[in-house]
């Protein structure tokens, strides 16, 4: 599964994209796996209320299923316009 990071999440983790081998069933489970990896992930995911998530390029919630998902993206609240 491809995991993408944008804006300060990308800067904190240090990469824009990576491929992750995971059996996580939900976004929350994926986040829990990532947080255990290294401190930079723990820091980036320390406050989920300041993050948004998209699964296969559709905005969703952290309890969303990852069944069949190919791409998950984490980013701060959007500031378009």
């Amino acid at each position: 599964m491809d995991v993408l990071y944008f804006a300060w999440v990308r800067e904190r983790i240090g990469i824009p994209k990576e491929t992750v081998e995971t059996s996580a069933a939900t976004v929350n489970e994926l986040v829990a796996e990532l947080r255990q990896r290294e401190e930079r992930y723990e820091v980036a995911f320390s406050d989920l209320s300041s993050l948004r998530v998209a699964v296969d390029q559709t905005l969703t919630d952290f309890d969303a299923s990852l069944s069949g998902a190919r791409e998950v993206a984490f980013f701060p609240p959007m500031t378009g316009g």
């Binding site: 959007m78 500031t79 316009g81």
Partner: peptide
């Protein structure tokens, strides 16, 4: 359109 693209379109400003 403006309200939605401000907080639902994936742009981030630095």
């Amino acid at each position: 359109l403006m309200d939605y693209l401000k907080s639902r379109a994936p742009f981030w400003k630095k």
